[in-house]
Each structure stands twice: as structure tokens, then as C-alpha cells.
Design a protein around this nucleic acid. Sequence first.
DNA 1: ATGACATCCATAGGATGA
Length: 278
Amino acid sequence: MRLATWNVNSVRSRVGRVVDWLTREDVDVLAMQEIKCTEAQFPFAEFEDAGYRVVLHGLNQWNGVAIASRYELDDVAMQFDGQPGFLKGAEGPDQPIEARAIGATTNGIRVWSIYAPNGRALGDPHYDYKLDWFAALQGSMTEWMASNADTPLMVAGDYNVAPLPEDVGDPTIIEGVSTHVSPPEREAFQALQAAGLADVVRPLIPEGYTYWDYKQLRFPRNEGMRIDFVLGSKPFADRVTGAAIHRDERKGDAPSDHVPVTVDIDTELEDDDRPMIF
DNA sequence: ATGACATCCATAGGATGA
């Protein structure tokens, strides 16, 4: 079984590329981020014609997350427990929850597609929101794992954190100045791992970026960042048999600024047991 | 080389991204 995560940077402007890639790479489950559309605007037909059903959380033109799967999608959750909200210029506890997380169970795997807040600048309210958001994600997933110890859990997406120095090749990202590399952000990412969510890609693919800015020839110069990750609980991580960063998806016409990351896991289900949609 | 990013929406310029 092959699972993937991809910040697509607008699913409407890239649906052809996304579905072609899913088919070509024989992907069973895709966690998407930055779909940038509402449910009414989502291009369901292209996914369904390729054999995928889709659940999504999209409130407006910002953010937006989705899960596409060849299997049924059950127990859909549009946010995690304790997820904080944000509204620029507003303060306090009543800020709206953004479309940055969706969870569903598919083929026995609990899958979350997450899009962490950017942070914008050190000291910006959005930066505090980002740290609060990670703390709540950790709390929610920790609680879930405690009561679902045997169910594989995948938390995949755009974490907007470059955990290690070698994850940063963009010269505009400077430690001590920029978001994505500050100690609190990196500690938040490490804390997820300490809580039992392992980065299942790093051991297999130790090098490589997942994002390159559109500006300043960042991709031709290979000045990117590694900020997209697949984390998994022990029952998930124990089943991982392979992983890949699909760098070629940054090439060609109208690419996203992020590339997809895939993880292969051993599954007891045979292909014959897959529910056929069409 | 005075530029050489791309998405969205109140289709013009602002917000957002990282």
C-alpha cells in the first residue's frame, strides 16, 4: 500500500498534474495541503474518474486540506482536539479554526493531512499560533494513540519546519532571524517524535528537499527546504517498506512549489480485497 | 539585465506564502 503527502498549492490549478501523478505512481492514499478551495469548488470528477474518493476541509481560498483514497474513508474529522484558531487582528479564544487538518480512516490506517501555520515572522502573532497549534496537535495525537495503540496512525503534511541544518538550502532562511528554523519550532517537531510519531522517511531518504521557492531560480540552484514529512505511530512505522521524495514533480509546466513524498507499507490486504469504486 | 513567483479574490492590487 502506497501513501503520499503533497502540498499542491491550489488543487484547481493543478488537478491534471496531481491525478496523473497518482495514477503513474500507483498511489493508494494522498494527503493534500493548500487545496485553496471549498467543497463546492473541488474538482471531484477528475479524482473519481481515476478511482479515488475524496474528503476535504476547505473554508475559503486559503489553506485547505484533503485526503484522496482508493479505499473508503470513514470517521472523518475536520479538526483535531484542541486545535487553536486564528484571525489576523483578533485576539483571544474565539478565533475561527482554519482548514489546516483533516483526519480519516482508510484501509485500516488512521490518516491525518496537516498544514501547519507558517508563522510569518518571529514574534508575530502567527508565530505564537504556530507553536500553540503544534502543542495541540501533539496532545491530540498522543491521546488518540493511547486509546488506539494497535491502529497504524499516519500524520502527514506540510509541517513548515526544517528540523535539521541540512534541511535548509535557501539562503534567505537564516537561523536566528527566520521562521521554520527557530529552536521553538524545531523543538515542537522533535516533541512530536518523542511522543511516538516517527519520521518514517528520513531513515530511508536521509537527504533532499521537498520545497523550493518559485523565486530566484531556487529549484535550478537546488536551494530548497525539507519541510514536508510523514510521521507515523509505531504500528505504522513498523510496516514501512520504502519511501521516496518525488523531486521530478517540481519540474515542467506549472508545478507546485512542493513535491510529493511517498511511503510504502506492508498490508495484509491483497489487491483482490480492495473495494472497487468503478 | 533595475528583473526573473504564484495562488486567490471584490480583476486591481493586496494578502499570503516560507
